[in-house]
Design a protein around this nucleic acid. Structure first.
Lengths: 344, 344
DNA sequence: CTGTTAGCGCATTCAA
DNA sequence: TTGAATGCGCTAACAG
């Protein structure tokens, strides 16, 4: 194992001081051409690279940004990460990814770790448990310590920082309104418990669309899925109603896919007997039969925007920094699981 | 923005030396109980935490491991990452993730960056372009520099290091043999170009199974997908043959899902007219209709093993370290896309 | 029991 | 044009 080459070693080699070498490698005008050339050639030959750890300590920054997401196995988050990576790398930053596993405690630990000089700024999508618990002191501490923070997707109103979010209300509205437009009379929603903000907002859009269409809200058709129990069993109840739905809006891809499977098992024709619409960035939608109509969420774009905001804040020099909230719009992707719109 | 508290500040506060503070906080027996108590209380009150950057420089290590994967949007890789995270965190390590985007150049850049003191060891799945180019000097340099390396999934024979791989040959064999056992007479394989090692190995298993079953290999039934062109168009040719297959083994989930969709479009009944079997760790398989039978790949387990090997090597003290190659076995998950095995 | 010194690798200010 | 000194924050060997 060959030892890494350092300024000190080069200095010894040429019998000059460390600072001379340092300046020579930066092509400083203070150093004579001849010395510079020789030192630079030597350094190049031995692949000299300044030690990152030393630079980090010296500069008090790491050129790294941290990401904390609930789960990496969700396709949406991988799209976001890809978007962040793109922008970060383009600006010479690296990316450190942590998972909170939707646990409050892990989120706090990760945040503490990252805040301790490891990264120059942090991008977070809040853990479910934190949303439920409503304890946000760790984020407040972070901001008090002057560490740039961007929240995306699952954000917190009371925290003052940059935010990037999906227009969930509008997405829920678009989805529901489309089901109305294709003629559905009884539209159910498969959503999350109240405390998951995105589920709550998509439900709000659903309600708006119904009232906008002069349709009554039937609480029986609002099903909040508890993921700690079997999801399929909960959804089955929808199909067992005396007056079952003819349209389903699911706030994510998995619920939609499961609903489709159950409909198939119940010998319902999709989309003739029932239309199903999901909400997602996922892969499943494209490969199911019939393929799934969805509300597209543009995770890649969300990631890029988040990284841009964060880097702006990190490199901001002046006094008055203004936080922003970017709303990323959704749009419908119509495939085979919803009836065609009948245009007159 | 409040300033971070350091040993120096505490020292000034108590008018003692920095090293006294350092020792007090480590509860050293060299320091009097009284001083220790006061200093510890003060430190606790101000949430003192040793600065990571300083520790990194001092200890010449970062307690971080690096991962380079081709793409984070592949479900298999997210499972691997989750496995790595688990083991890393359990041992007090953090994880830094980079994507090579299957590009040789990005892989080299990432490796250089990580090798430069940023991490204590690296886990890699090789980029496609690197496999094609067969230029592995960056890995050799890494090892010469004494930085622990673990390769997983897409590994390189000529690089001497720890490796974790799927038993791809056996997986291909299992899949093909099962298709034979359920009565398929013409079994096609949807695989990758030759240079993608895992595709090559699964093809090898396919061939073994055929010859073991005294079935002739029909080169027409071996289709190497070129992902730069439209995948569906290539697979369609399989169904347009004069003597089309009655069984398909796809080396990944996407090819399998696309094949299913085409079969559906061609009004073929799955599994009655044609059985389809995939290879994966993905989500799609469960949610298609019919759900897809697959060879399970156990990415989570692969990640854990990789991290264990890496941490072992990192923390290994003695002289003679022995590299290992761990083979993770696959197994069949039988769902609805393959005919039932007819047991007499 | 407490403090001084040195060093991790680098950049920078100031002195020669 | 070069070098010495300082500091980033921390630890540890050694001295008092």
């Amino acid at each position: 194992m060959k030892q890494k080459i350092t300024l000190k070693k080069i200095a010894k080699e040429f019998d000059v001081s460390i600072s001379t070498v340092s300046k020579a490698l930066k092509d400083s005008h203070e150093i004579s051409e001849e010395v510079k050339e020789r030192i630079q050639a030597f350094a190049k030959f031995y692949h000299y690279k300044p030690n990152s750890l030393a630079l980090n300590l010296r500069n008090q920054k790491t050129k790294t940004i941290g990401i904390i997401i609930p789960q990496i196995v969700h396709h949406f988050f991988t799209k976001v990460i890809s978007g962040i990576e793109l922008v970060a790398n383009k600006n010479g930053y690296n990316v450190m990814i942590c998972m909170s596993m939707d646990s409050y405690e892990k989120e706090v630990l990760n945040l503490d770790m990252l805040a301790n000089g490891v990264v120059d700024g942090i991008i977070v999508s809040v853990a479910k448990e934190t949303e439920e618990k409503k304890d946000f002191t760790h984020f407040k501490d972070l901001i008090n310590n002057g560490i740039p923070l961007v929240l995306f997707d699952r954000v917190i109103d009371e925290i003052k920082c940059n935010k990037v979010l999906t227009n969930d209300i509008d997405g829920g509205y678009l989805a529901t309104k489309h089901l109305v437009n294709i003629g559905c009379k009884r539209i159910a929603i498969l959503t999350t418990p109240e405390f998951v903000t995105v589920g709550k907002l998509r439900l709000e859009g659903y309600k708006n669309a119904l009232s906008n269409s002069s349709m009554d809200l039937d609480e029986e058709l609002v099903m909040q899925i508890n993921e700690e129990h079997d999801i399929a069993n909960q959804i089955k109840k929808l199909f067992a109603m005396k007056n079952p739905p003819d349209g389903i809006f699911a706030v994510n891809e998995i619920y939609a896919a499961i609903a489709m499977k159950i409909a198939n098992k119940n010998n319902l024709k999709i989309p003739d007997d029932i239309s199903i619409l999901g909400f997602t960035d996922g892969l499943i939608s494209q490969y199911t039969t019939p393929s799934l109509s969805t509300v597209a969420q543009h995770g890649y774009h969300i990631g890029q925007k988040s990284a841009e905001l964060l880097l702006n804040e990190i490199e901001f020099q002046d006094t008055e920094y203004q936080y922003q909230t970017k709303i990323i719009e959704t749009n419908l992707i119509l495939r085979e699981s919803t009836k065609k719109l009948n245009l007159h």
